[in-house]
Design a protein around this nucleic acid. Structure first.
Lengths: 204, 204
DNA sequence: CGTGATCCTGACCAACTGGTCAATATTTTG
DNA sequence: CAAAATATTGACCAGTTGGTCAGGATCACG
């Protein structure tokens, strides 16, 4: 059953939001273990007991962030449909994922941190809903391949490649920027590169 | 000046090695903050004070691991030479990086953890030695491109793509396995996929 | 075999962490 | 505006953490 849409006072709404934003910042930058409730509170401009007035525990904050994240994270993949041009749709998916890395790098890093540590709070979803979604879209992509509308390839690994290539720019941002040096816009450069890559890979 | 090759007793050599192995295991799985000296000691089969007899601090262990890692990590890139077939060399590089993800996933995750948290103990190297190395190899690759021996592309982002695509299989291993389910060998499947991808991307 | 160097440990410590709670301040609402 | 509901806090606690240290065990070597 979906959680009852609990009545929230004005203050409750605002403070829960503030805390979640601060926590996202901290968890993404320091990881779960490296983040203290005190730092979350400080970033949020609240006292530690006050943070714990709105959330029962540090883990509860983390869990809530992850849940909210997942919906958002998978939305672009859901939008791949059987109708429309195969190449356009896959290119659009890659482009949208790259935009998400650019616009929501903290979310990307939160996710990366979690998966990197073995996804202790997420693995049921990875093996459940995510797996089914991938299965579904991979089947569609392979149908396209069989019809000769795109190249024959391993659709699951195609999806992995899109994840890897786009999230890399958020998750390894320091490295990318250190290597490129100043005066580069990683995302602006990545877009045409990925476009070129997938056009060539997918050409029938 | 390079560190003097300090004399090490038999026991010292063995125990330092044991500790580093245990620490790699822990740091890769739990991150820096999530790892305790006690756990390292337990995994190594030693007492905590004994671990601190061989290393002055937790951070020193971590730093030593990172330093050792970096040489190993960049070796394959160094092997790209001006002589030899361009396509072969880039494909071989990608293949070797994939093998490293398969054979040294803990090293990959240690590195990912570090970069993800902003590379606090590594950024000078990223912007220094790594940057120079990339600059060097990127120039070479772009020469090949200008000569029409491979497709024209952004060489730096080509290298990023190789890092992203290969390290993904180690860093996001739980996700890859959860999505593929049992009965799949991610690395065995990834190899031909990456081969196909780079052959098509690089074809003049 | 003995003695100096190396190795190892239990006991300890100060700082920090997640979390509690009773008391107080502020809002909301009848 | 008064009382009830909500929000906030300082003080506190028990457990954990990185790290120290004095003393004892073990080893290498003349």
């Amino acid at each position: 059953m979906p959680e009852a849409p609990r009545r929230q006072s004005r203050i409750q709404k605002k403070n829960r939001e503030t805390i979640l934003t601060a926590a996202l910042q901290e968890f993404a930058a320091q990881g779960y273990a490296g983040t203290t409730i005190d730092r979350i509170a400080e970033t949020a401009g609240l006292s530690k007991p006050n943070v714990l007035y709105y959330f029962p525990s540090k883990e509860a904050i983390h869990r809530e962030l992850l849940e909210a994240l997942l919906d958002m994270w998978l939305a672009p993949l859901r939008e791949i449909r059987a109708d429309g041009d195969p190449l356009d749709q896959i290119l659009a998916y890659a482009r949208r994922k790259l935009e998400m890395s650019r616009d929501y790098p903290r979310e990307s890093r939160l996710f990366a941190n979690e998966v990197l540590q073995g996804a202790p709070r997420l693995s049921p979803i990875l093996g459940g809903a995510l797996r089914e979604l991938v299965e579904d879209k991979a089947a569609l992509i392979e149908t396209w391949a069989e019809q000769g509308r795109i190249a024959r390839l391993d659709a699951r690994h195609l999806l992995f490649s899109i994840w890897a290539l786009t999230q890399h720019y958020a998750d390894f941002e320091v490295q990318v920027r250190a290597v490129l040096g100043q005066g580069h816009d990683p995302y602006a450069e990545a877009e045409p590169f990925l476009d070129q890559l997938y056009r060539r890979l997918l050409a029938p």
